[in-house]
Structure formats: structure tokens, C-alpha cells
Design a protein around this nucleic acid. Structure first.
Length: 570
DNA sequence: GCCGTTTTCGGCCCGACTGTTTTCAGTCG
């Protein structure tokens, strides 16, 4: 698949054009770069099927870029790109990945000091040769060195699961300040993206100076990037940045809307406003110079003729059009979850007994809990064999006989062997309330075989859930190769629910795949895969991901009553 | 370079802060 390569090339061309201050063209390249990055179909397939004409059907790809794609597919290179590279042969991703360096500065650094990559950059900055260049001073040089150090440390983004607890701590501290009238987290944290670049906070206060002074002296602040009366920015010791903006009450809604993003969502909403002869910015909705909305988000959206979209929907994935027609989905909420169907007890070496897990599940107000221990193939996890499963069946029956208003289900997380068979015999699977199947070995299998392997497993009549369906581990392991469309078709045909694994490093299915599953009419289940009782609380991350994937209660089987769920399993 | 159309041209989101200037360019979000 050449999508990513082309996306990168168009990104670089855009930056070169920015350097030469070509108007508007770079934005066009940038836009197409983003489109290609997110495009699910293979551009090469599209080109093979319909040539340049079909490529032009891709949004933001016109005649010029379609030709460029064709050139790349045929020759492996794009002429204008090669020329631009020759003129300024710089590793753009590296240099411009440093905070504060954009195309203009990158150009100067190359022309004056022949800086080509981050190594050159660090060397020249340390030697003090950067300050003094036109447009560069001591501070810029120092910031460059700090930016390089950050890149080395963090590789950029943080997992939502790492960040959210820290954000909540900061929120608590700020809310305790009496000068703060309202406080909200905005940005990608509010949208619950799986990884977070930095944190945006928004506050209302009549005394912004006091608030900013307090903010920049919060415990954990290691550097103050900027401090003003409306915006301040700091680096925390964990390595991420936080922005706090103070806005007047009357603009709070429009500011929250604006700073929640996404950028793409905002561009569209502003255009919607323009169509209606209005102007939308972070201060409000304006008709001429008259402000007609702004104090809360609902009225802002209403003023421009849109239904209020949940933050998780604001990714310019069709939500604005849906909001215009009043057809936004009624996405699930955390309290709709009625049980967790994937957790591990001490039977397979997990940390807690079934009874201990039940306690937490009841505290979460669940109606049921599915124990799904590993099975025998996973020796390292003390996987259960057929006899152990039977013993566990009896134990669970006994526990259930003592419970009122709550039910423990017996599942099992079985393993999909390389040929698609399940590592537990059908006679034993039959005794379970449901069985989960997952790939836990041979991740690197070739695509067609992997697809067939997974589909074979789903054909087993006792398999009701496919756990972590794509196998990715954030920042560590890519998805395994499988044809997801075929997996979806099989899931539908054989009535298998696909898991949305809630663990913050998995989140598998991810938002886009959840959306695809929903559109294919495939049912899903949000599970924590907890190996200790505290992890049952990770459910919120799975719910957030499902919300980002537009999932509604009808799509998620553990939003259903025990009766309906039991029928699904039957 | 794309898009949309009142369709082959004209518009493309826009404001805050920094660091460098000496009135503003560059970067970021």
C-alpha cells in the first residue's frame, strides 16, 4: 500500500512550497496528504480500477495531484518533488518535528548553515552558530536544543490512559482556586483520542492574572513556554505540554467549541457559519458585528443551524452533515454498560478470585460479569484445559446460587490455532455460556492465511466474541495482516461480536474500525480484559473509543439486558 | 492545487504569543 508514502511526499512538497511562500498551493498538498493518510482503500487499487479519473473522485485530489499519484505509481518518483529536494535537501520531518521550527526557519538553517537533519541541528545549536542568523536569537537556539531533547525523550504523543489521570489531578487543583468560575478540558483529551499530543484547558475568570500565576506554578511544571493574560503554556515533568486559556463568560461556549476541535471539525463549522452569513470564532457567533451566541456550546451550534455533537464525534467524519439534518447518532454512555464479558480470574493465574471481581463489578452497577480465563494453549498464562473448565463451571454455578440480582457467566478466552481450529474441544465449549476466540500466536502470518484462520474460528458455533480483533498494541505492535472487510462479513454471517478491547494500549477495535463494524451491521462488545480487579475500571476507555466510532446501544451487546444477551449467545 | 459554480475564475479559517524586530514574521493550534 503506497498511501502512506504518497501522504509523506505530499506533506513534504507542501512544506517546500511554504518555504517559497507560494500562496494556497501548499494547503492543497497538505490537505491531500491528510486525506491519503486516512484513506482506507489502497490508492494503487483505485488507480488500477479507474486510472486518473477514479483518483480524482477522492476528495481533495484533483487533476494535478491525480497525475502526480500516477507518476509515482508508474515511476516510483515525482519529478517536481525531486527538484524541490535537490534545491533544499533536508530531512523535513526531522527538522520541522522540533517545536518552533517551521518551513521558513528550516530554509534559513539550510541555506546559511547547511543543516540537513536533527544531528546537524543539534551540533550547530550547541556550537552557538544558530543565534545571530537573521530571525534567530539566543532564545530560539535554546528552544531548539530543548525541543530536540523532548523528541528524544517522548517520541511525541502520550496514551490517553497515561494522560487522563494526570489531567484530572490538574483539574482538581485548578477548580479549587476561587478565581476560577468554570473549568473544562478541551482538545483531544475531551474528544478522547487514543493518543494525546498536549492538553488544552479552558477557564472563565475575572482575574486571569491570578489564574495564570497559579497555573504556571502548579506542581510538576518544569518549564513555562509562555504566559499571557489569555493564554499560558507549560511543560510538565512527565514530558507533555499543557495550555490554559482564560476566556470571558459570554464566550465560554464558543471558546470550548473552538478549543475542543478537531481542527478539521472547526474548519467545517466555520464554513457552515459563513454559508449562513455568520462568522464563528472563539469569541462567539457573529452577525455582522453583533454577537448572537457564545456562552455555551449548545447555543453556538444552534445558532449556526447544527445539532450539538458529542465531543467524541468531532473529527469531520460526517458529523457536521448529520448534525445539520438532526441525525446525529445517540451514542452509548458509560452508564449504559451492563456488564463486562472479558476478564481473568485467579483460575488462569490472574490476580483476583471470581468473588473479588464480582465485588467490583457490582460496585460498577453491572448486572452481570463474564469470567473468561485463558485456555490451555497459553501455557505461560496457566491456560485452562477441558477438565479445569468443567470444574470452574461447577464453581460458578455454586457462586450464582448465592447471588441475587447479579449473574456470573462463564466464558473462556480460547486461542485460535494456526489452522483456525480452537484449542478447546466443542464438548467443553458447549458447557460455557459463551466462548471468546483470539489470536495469541503467529502474529506475522501472511494476510490471506490470517484472514482465513480468523474466519475459520468464527465458524465454530460456540465462539461468540472475537477478542482484540486486529492485534495492535499502541506504540509497540502493528495490526496483524487480515482482510478486515472479510472478517466483518464473517462476523455478521456467524453472529460473532467483535470486541472493543478497552485497555488503553490496545483500544482494539479502534474508532474507525468500530464505525466500519457498525455500518456493516456487526455487533460489538466492550471489554476490559482485566487481569486484576482494578482494571475493570478501564471500561471508560473502551466506551470512549466506541463513542468515537458512533456506536449506539443497539450495536453493543453488553449494553443489553441479561435476557437479550443470553438469547444472542444461544 | 482544489473546489464549486451564479461552471473555467476567485476564494481558500483565523487569532494569540514569541522572538525578533522597531512594526511584524513565523509558528502554532
Amino acid at each position: 500500500m503506497k498511501n502512506q508514502e504518497l501522504s509523506q511526499i505530499f506533506y513534504n512538497i507542501a512544506q517546500y512550497l511554504f518555504m517559497e511562500k507560494v500562496p494556497f498551493k501548499p494547503q492543497a498538498y497538505l490537505k491531500s496528504s491528510e486525506i491519503l493518510q486516512a484513506l482506507e482503500e489502497d490508492v494503487e487499487d483505485i488507480y488500477r480500477q479507474g486510472g486518473v479519473e477514479l483518483l480524482e473522485k477522492i476528495p481533495s485530489i484533483g487533476r494535478g495531484l491525480a497525475k502526480a499519484i500516477e507518476e509515482y505509481l508508474q515511476t516510483g518518483t515525482i519529478r517536481i518533488y525531486e527538484e524541490l529536494k535537490k534545491r533544499i535537501p533536508v530531512k523535513l520531518e526531522e527538522i520541522m518535528g522540533v517545536e518552533g521550527l517551521g518551513p521558513q526557519k528550516t530554509r534559513v538553517l539550510y541555506q546559511k548553515l547547511k543543516i540537513k537533519d536533527i544531528k546537524d541541528l543539534e551540533r550547530e545549536a550547541k556550537a552557538g552558530r544558530i543565534s545571530g542568523l537573521f530571525g534567530f536569537g539566543d532564545k530560539t537556539e535554546k528552544n531548539i536544543l530543548e525541543g530536540i531533547a523532548f523528541l528524544k525523550r517522548s517520541k511525541g504523543r502520550f496514551l490517553l490512559g497515561e494522560i487522563l489521570p494526570l489531567v484530572r489531578e490538574v483539574e482538581e487543583r485548578l477548580k479549587a482556586l476561587k478565581e476560577i468560575e468554570s473549568l473544562n478540558v478541551a482538545g483531544s483529551v475531551r474528544r478522547r483520542k487514543e493518543t494525546i499530543g498536549d492538553i488544552d484547558l479552558l477557564a472563565v475568570s475575572k482575574n486571569p492574572k491570578k489564574v495564570m500565576d497559579f497555573f504556571v506554578s502548579l506542581p510538576g511544571v518544569v518549564k513555562i513556554w509562555s504566559q499571557g493574560s489569555t493564554r499560558s503554556s507549560v511543560r510538565m515533568k512527565e514530558g507533555f505540554d499543557m495550555d490554559l486559556r482564560v476566556v470571558p463568560q459570554r464566550s465560554y461556549g464558543s471558546a470550548l467549541q473552538y478549543f475542543t476541535g478537531s481542527k478539521e471539525h472547526n474548519i467545517i463549522t466555520r464554513k457552515v457559519a459563513i454559508e449562513k452569513g455568520l462568522k464563528l470564532n472563539e469569541y462567539g457567533v457573529f452577525k455582522g458585528s453583533k454577537m448572537i451566541a457564545g456562552k455555551n456550546e449548545e447555543e453556538v451550534y444552534k445558532a449556526i443551524g447544527l445539532q450539538w455533537p458529542e465531543p467524541e464525534l468531532r473529527e469531520n467524519h460526517g458529523e457536521v452533515e448529520a448534525a445539520r439534518q438532526g441525525k446525529l447518532p445517540k451514542i452509548i454512555r458509560g452508564k449504559d454498560i451492563k456488564g463486562d464479558l472479558h476478564c481473568h480470574s485467579d483460575w488462569d493465574g490472574g490476580e483476583n478470585s471470581i468473588e473479588e471481581l464480582i465485588k467490583v463489578a457490582r460496585a460498577l452497577d453491572y448486572d452481570y460479569l463474564g469470567i473468561s480465563d485463558h485456555t490451555q494453549y497459553l501455557k505461560i498464562e496457566n491456560g485452562l484445559n477441558e477438565r479445569a473448565l468443567l470444574r470452574q463451571r461447577k464453581a460458578i454455578n455454586k457462586i450464582n446460587s448465592k447471588l441475587k440480582g447479579f449473574k456470573v457467566l462463564q466464558g473462556a478466552e480460547t486461542n485460535i490455532l494456526n489452522d483456525g481450529r480452537i484449542d478447546i474441544k466443542d464438548e467443553a465449549l458447549k458447557q460455557l455460556d459463551y466462548a471468546i476466540a483470539g489470536v495469541h500466536s503467529s502474529f506475522k502470518m501472511e494476510k490471506a492465511r490470517m484472514t482465513e484462520r480468523i474466519i475459520q474460528a468464527m465458524k465454530n458455533p460456540y465462539i461468540k466474541i472475537l477478542s482484540h480483533p486486529t492485534g495492535r498494541i499502541l506504540k509497540k505492535r502493528d495490526e496483524y495482516q487480515a482482510d478486515f472487510d472479510k472478517v466483518l462479513r464473517a462476523a455478521k454471517e456467524y453472529h460473532v461480536a467483535l470486541e472493543v478491547n478497552a485497555h488503553p494500549v490496545r483500544l482494539d477495535l479502534n474508532d474507525q474500525n468500530i464505525r466500519r463494524a457498525k455500518e456493516a451491521g456487526v455487533k460489538m462488545v466492550i471489554n476490559t480484559d482485566a487481569h486484576q480487579r482494578e482494571q475493570l475500571h478501564l471500561m471508560e476507555f473502551g466506551v470512549a473509543q466506541a463513542r468515537r466510532g458512533w456506536a449506539e446501544n443497539k450495536d453493543i451487546i453488553n449494553c443489553w439486558s441479561l435476557d437479550r444477551l443470553t438469547k444472542f449467545f444461544k
